[in-house]
Design a binder for these strands. Structure first.
Length: 276
DNA sequence: CCATTAACCTGACAGC
DNA sequence: TGCTGTCAGGTTAATG
């Protein structure tokens, strides 16, 4: 489900809990995509939430005891806030419950269980299995047109799969890859080495533009994704190609077809008339 | 190096 | 009301 904008929206919402202490963590199952470390309950007890940030699609909750919780939402994961509810109340698929001071509770809910819930030493984050091969986040200061060019220009893979490759850029998923490529009018079938220098600049700009706009709209809600308070994102109303059949061209008001193809077992939506 | 396939899961939806 | 098949914001391992 969630791509960078949805994860970012989650992190922004979670920031209200910075400064609170973890009273206890309750595990309602011992694994998601990976096993959840058993000692997570002991390590986190009475620790303070110092800061919360995001790298790619990962949420990082830094505690004041030199450890950090690492969370990935997978396809259907969501962090839910139970601020004004009975602390004993939980819903189906609330696999992890985090009880906080001030009688707050947040849970990790994930029907399909492709998500990750882990804890590692904060200083070991960059060298951990989650981050040691991860490409730059699009909002990292080092992320540039030249970085994109360097990583992609020799590749014979399609630009769509390059955008989805988290080892190159971290955070873009299937929806935003389609929307970004439409925005810069590049065909998803084009290979990295067949894209011009000028197009790399356009691609770079579209990545930032589309992701920023989506964050501004609090992400996209198709079925699973909602904010931690259950509020829907809005960006799905701005999709131009994803899940669409056609688009009205600005140039001449004519209708252009949008087609759905398969690339690496994922659906790609694009407009062959506009994207070259 | 790259594409393809399958695998990990549940739930929603279409069609019969 | 079923049942069946398909599809889904992700990632990874195996195979050719």
């Amino acid at each position: 489900m969630p791509e960078l904008p949805e994860v970012e929206t989650t992190v922004l919402d979670l920031n209200r809990f910075v400064g609170l202490y973890i009273r206890s963590i309750k595990l309602n199952r011992n694994n998601l995509r990976y096993p959840i470390p058993k000692n997570i309950t002991i390590i986190t007890k009475k620790s303070k939430i110092q800061s919360i940030n995001r790298i790619g699609k990962y949420i990082i909750i830094n505690l004041n005891n030199l450890f950090s919780l690492i969370i990935h939402l997978g396809m259907s994961g969501r962090i839910k806030s139970y601020e004004f509810k009975d602390l004993n109340y939980r819903e189906k698929h609330d696999h992890v419950e985090i009880f906080l001071t001030k009688d707050k509770k947040i849970t990790f809910n994930d029907p399909r269980r492709f998500g990750i819930f882990d804890i590692i030493k904060t200083e070991k984050i960059p060298n951990s299995k989650y981050f040691n091969k991860l490409g730059l986040d699009p909002f990292d200061k080092k992320f540039s047109k030249d970085y994109l060019h360097k990583k992609m220009c020799k590749s014979s893979a399609s630009i769509k799969s390059l955008l989805l490759n988290q080892k190159i850029i971290s955070g873009i998923g299937n929806i935003y890859a389609c929307e970004i490529l439409f925005d810069c009018k590049i065909s998803p079938l084009k290979t990295g080495k067949n894209i011009s220098n000028k197009q790399y600049l356009l691609l770079f700009k579209s990545i930032k533009k589309i992701l920023k706009l989506a964050i501004k709209n609090k992400g996209s809600s198709l079925k699973d994704y909602k904010s931690i308070d259950g509020i829907l994102g809005n960006y799905q109303n701005n999709f131009l190609v994803y899940n669409k059949k056609s688009i009205k061209m600005k140039r001449n008001n004519k209708i252009a077809k949008i087609i759905k193809i398969n690339q690496g077992n994922r659906s790609t939506y694009y407009c062959p008339t506009i994207q070259k």
